[in-house]
């Protein structure tokens, strides 16, 4: 250290007033108090359990909203299950006419397929006719005439061996 530096060190700095010390100390103290609150939230009265809560074995206050959420979810699940069961019961209680119609349709299709198979095995006519009947009888006839080049005889078609399906239809529908 040079002489000049030593001389500079001999100089006396102006001292701040006590007011500055008090202001800064108050800031530091306030920070310390705030830090204690942050570090120890359990020390706050609102977060502490009372003696009665502890002796009754009550859950902490923070778990109560969770319990409410669990109850709400259970209720929603029960309502959904009940709705499902009611829907199934209503479905089973529907009028039987619809089911009969479905059964009749299935029986008709089955008999029609069987009879069509008896017409001309291997010719493919039966399947074509069966397909065309699903459209309409008139369309089926037109389709058959276009594909075979023959004329469909309305008067004799019920007795024609080629049209067993027609006999089945007439037997069912009259």
């Amino acid at each position: 250290m040079s002489d000049l530096e030593s001389q500079i060190r001999e100089l006396i700095l102006r001292a701040p007033s006590e007011v500055m010390d008090q202001r800064v100390q108050s800031v530091l103290m306030a920070t310390d108090a705030a830090g204690a609150v942050v570090r120890k939230p359990e020390s706050m009265p609102g977060c502490r359990l009372t003696g009665s809560e502890l002796s009754d074995g009550a859950e902490p206050a923070e778990s109560r909203p969770r319990l409410r959420r669990d109850i709400a979810a259970t209720v929603v699940c029960l309502i959904a299950a009940a709705s499902l069961l009611i829907g199934i019961a209503i479905g089973r209680g529907l009028p039987t006419s619809t089911r009969n119609a479905d059964a009749a349709q299935a029986a008709f299709s089955e008999s029609f397929a069987v009879s069509a198979g008896e017409i001309q095995p291997g010719s493919g006519d039966a399947s074509q006719i069966a397909e065309s009947v699903s459209l309409s009888l008139r369309d089926a006839v037109v389709n058959w005439e276009q594909q075979t080049g023959q004329i469909f005889n309305v008067a004799t078609h019920v007795h024609d061996r080629r049209f067993n399906m027609c006999r089945e239809c007439h037997r069912i529908g009259g």
């Binding site: 700095l13 102006r14 500055m20 530091l28 920070t31 830090g35």
Partner: peptide, 18 residues
């Protein structure tokens, strides 16, 4: 950190003011 700040202030208050 508050303790360090307090210590620093006590040590350097005059220099900081200067």
């Amino acid at each position: 950190m508050r303790g360090e700040l307090e210590q620093l202030y006590c040590q350097h208050r005059q220099t900081l003011f200067s």
